[in-house]
Write a protein that binds this DNA or RNA. Structure first.
Length: 485
RNA sequence: CGGGGAGUGGCUCAGCCUGGUAGAGCACUUGGUUCGGGACCAAGGGGUCGCAGGUUCAAAUCCUGUCUCCCCGACCA
């Protein structure tokens, strides 16, 4: 088969590699609706695994799921000044329904996020401090009109979860905001094998209507940053606009302190951009839809025997809790299948053929195995009776190794910069840790002149005073600058 | 939204300049031979040429508009 069947390499054209990989691995497809995508079974399966894990984590931290309407009265959004200002350019509005135009005041926006409509309900449900905290989450689709879209990373409609909580005090809301940020960090690192920087966003980068916004920021393989999740302390901003009040322990009425937090199908984009290679998709075992595929090799009687073994082996894998399938399709050559399963990101490939039957072994190939100069990955010959145990330990090792590799990559592409010149020179080099005086105008100037934006001020970055790289003004500590998605 | 590129069977593209009844490779279907890194032979199926107007006896081809995708910017998860 010709080279046209290969993906463009990351070095050749990173964007094209990304787009083609998604389509060839059958993760998603374009639709006829501008800016919207179809998530195909291979992609949706990853999302389902993410949902399952995250939902479990939300439940463990005391949250319950609910569902609120897709359509929000236009007027609700207008109540919170920053909120409407922030979202106005991205709204899709329903202005025609039931066969007739809707008057202003009757129109609906398709939710870009649900703080407003959820507060209408919270206001009814909360009377006393005894009703608090109220810890809720919804899995939903949202719509934000975008100028430029990219599969998974930015689409007009996307799937996400949005957590919304109410608390008695500022401190409790703050705790919740950070607790959920930490849940996101755990998920990113332990499941996605994607290291993230947890920290606070600047004023200009915060959520419209929030008091403070925190984010997890990851570094993609092209060294650009990706905001992978956000957690907001909303203060009493929405509570005041929607009268979300409770009678406190002091007998007086108080507005609730609120938080909201979300991650979206963008995480799938993050996963791809973090781990995948020139052969195709790489998915960490914990999130992979199919962890193991057993490919039957051979012909005639030998093939029949290999097939029997393969199904027996698959049954053992299933018993051990692994997600496995057998491929005994005779119309495709093994070589084709190897390439195809690499493209689709199956974590572990097992080859089972005549030579194995003779020796009582099978061949195992890790998706992230080292490759020789010809591009062939390293193969392991494993006795059949050790196959399950070996596969399990291999998948564990792969999960760890992906995280380590991503960590090393980030470390190798993170730099302290001490002058504006240096910052300009290194603009495309990754994460730049620089002093900045905190002035939004300077932040904007840097963005316009270099394309660099502030990502966040990481909690674990030691804050030592210094001088702003642009103005020379005092700076409380370094903040992360980077080009970003 | 600005600059650049592209839309022709599922995919990659030729044909367009110079209008005349739509092609190739891959993929797909069937049969056979193969099978440990993208197999081969044979026979088949599949396209209102992105969409809408216009010019013309005649439009994939010329003109106008429009939509979508890709790349580079501005806005954003």
């Amino acid at each position: 088969m010709a080279s046209s069947d290969k993906l463009p390499t990351r070095a050749e054209n990173f964007s094209e590699w990304y787009v083609e990989l998604i389509q060839r691995a059958k993760l998603a497809d374009y639709s006829d609706v501008k800016g919207c995508m179809v998530i195909r079974p291979n992609g949706y399966a990853i999302w389902e695994n993410m949902q399952r894990v995250l939902d479990g984590m939300f439940k463990e931290t005391g949250h319950v799921n609910a569902y609120f309407p897709l359509l929000i009265p236009e007027e609700y959004l207008e109540r919170e000044k920053d909120h409407v200002e922030g979202f106005k350019p991205q709204l899709a509005v329903v202005g025609y329904a039931g066969g007739a135009p809707l008057e202003k005041g009757q129109r609906y926006v398709i939710r870009p996020t649900s703080e407003t409509i959820i507060n209408r309900s919270f206001a009814k449900w909360i009377q006393s401090y005894r009703d608090l905290p109220m810890l809720m989450n919804q899995w939903a689709n949202v719509m934000r009109w975008e100028m430029r879209t990219r599969l998974f990373l930015r689409t007009t409609e996307f799937l996400w979860q949005e957590g919304h909580t109410c608390h008695e005090t500022d401190e409790q809301a703050q705790e919740e905001t950070l607790r959920m940020l930490d849940v996101y960090r755990t998920f990113a690192e332990d499941y996605m094998a994607m290291p993230v920087l947890c920290g606070q966003k600047t004023e200009s980068e915060k959520f419209p209507g929030a008091v403070r916004t925190y984010s997890i920021e990851a570094m993609m393989q092209d060294k650009k940053a990706l905001q992978a999740g956000t957690s907001h302390h909303l203060g009493q901003n929405f509570a005041k606009m929607f009268d979300t009040q409770f009678q406190g322990r002091d007998g007086k009425q108080h507005h609730a302190w609120q938080t909201s937090w979300g991650v979206s199908t963008r995480l799938i984009g993050a996963l791809i951009l973090t781990h995948s290679d020139d052969a195709g998709l790489v998915v960490p075992p914990k999130l992979a839809d199919r962890q193991v595929v057993i490919i039957v090799v051979g012909k005639g009687d030998e093939r029949t025997k290999a097939k029997e073994k393969a199904f027996a082996l698959a049954a053992d894998f299933k018993t051990a809790g692994l997600r496995v399938s057998v491929d005994d399709d005779e119309s495709k050559n093994p070589g084709f299948k190897y390439a195809e399963y690499e493209l689709q990101g199956i974590c572990l490939r097992i080859e089972l053929g005549p030579k194995d039957l003779e020796k009582g072994t099978c061949v195992m190939v890790r998706r992230d195995a080292e490759r020789d100069p010809a591009g062939k990955p390293k193969k392991e010959f494993v006795p059949l009776d050790q196959a399950v145990a070996h596969a399990q330990s291999t998948l564990d090792a792969m999960q760890k190794s992906l995280l380590e590799k991503a960590k090393a990559f980030r470390a190798a592409n993170t730099f302290e910069v001490n002058s504006y010149d240096e910052m300009k020179k290194r603009a495309d080099d990754g994460f730049l840790l620089a002093h900045w005086n905190g002035d939004a105008k300077v932040e904007k100037q840097i963005k316009e002149e270099t394309g660099l934006t502030t990502r966040n001020r990481p909690f674990d970055l030691k804050q030592e005073p210094g001088k702003c790289v642009v103005t020379g003004d005092p700076s409380p500590g370094r903040i992360v600058f980077s080009k970003a998605y």
